[in-house]
Design a protein around this nucleic acid. Sequence first.
DNA 1: TGGTTCAGTCTGATGACCAGACAATAATCG
DNA 2: CGATTATTGTCTGGTCATCAGACTGAACCA
Lengths: 171, 171
Amino acid sequence: MALGIGYADQTCNLARALEVLGERWTMLILRDCFYGVRRFSDLLAHLDISRAVLTERLNTLVEAGIVERRAEGGHPVYLLTEAGTATWPSLYALARWGERFGPPERRSGRTFRHWGCDAELDDHGRCPECGATPGPADVVTHPGPARAGDRTDPVSVALRSPHRLLTSVPA
Amino acid sequence: MALGIGYADQTCNLARALEVLGERWTMLILRDCFYGVRRFSDLLAHLDISRAVLTERLNTLVEAGIVERRAEGGHPVYLLTEAGTATWPSLYALARWGERFGPPERRSGRTFRHWGCDAELDDHGRCPECGATPGPADVVTHPGPARAGDRTDPVSVALRSPHRLLTSVPA
DNA sequence: TGGTTCAGTCTGATGACCAGACAATAATCG
DNA sequence: CGATTATTGTCTGGTCATCAGACTGAACCA
């Protein structure tokens, strides 16, 4: 989490999670990883983050074992590890909260549905159709309605169609 | 979230949640609110946060409708609103993740149990005994084992005994 | 009245983040 | 093969958040 001392004196699992996940941009980077964004340049364009900070966050995530850096045809590719995919319930819960209680402007309308059932997941990430609580690999995200001023980077464009989580995007 | 621009261009419910909840210290303040910490001085002592930052965070949380400031006998008291208590699934999921994958030192061993059933909640916050997913008011937290160097502020001391969430602490 | 607690505000120092320039390596094309 | 472009970073100077700790003002207590 940086800024000096972290949460050094907090003997608490939440503080331990936030020590890694709570830094600025980190959860949004993970969100993009779930969406299937894998390349430095795509993260950069989709997040509007500074290069230096993106580099630093990715290094931190790799060191923490949340993301794996793999060389693929010369250029690196970033993939979620088991610890990374295990952050899904946290991100999903936060997004749900943001939908109901976040600042009212910029409501996205994006939904998450169970692969196969096509039913929208509830507050706890459960499929109302079959009762299962699917992992991210079995979740499909559907975009909300288009709006003026939508982003035009390749990732944003690709995510205007329904997309199964963890499968590569764009292309 | 501050530091200049927020996540202004991210049309995304997660970004909207993090705009408020993602600032440094904010989720730990909310954790303490769930524990029942209600006074400025108790938050200050329990969190080791600077006075200026605590003041600013509380103001932000009040403005966002997540926490309510109520004058009680001259001194203010801070209580979770409906939007505040609705953050419980997010905090619980993060704490669960921190327990499994966070930095290995400072593992707390603290558990969360269903009031009445006394069964430990699972990854999704569900009670394995009765199948319900209790809200925070029906959750009891049990401390992990004591350790050398445990904090000695009143809140930390009080939380060494089992404690029902949202009930006042200390005393 | 004078001391104590509490809830903030204020200050100077440190460091994280920003935009944008620069560098190094890898793919592409004539 | 050599030149161009694409991609992944590193570096820099300025801005702003956070830090520790001193200070203020109001309420409560003896």
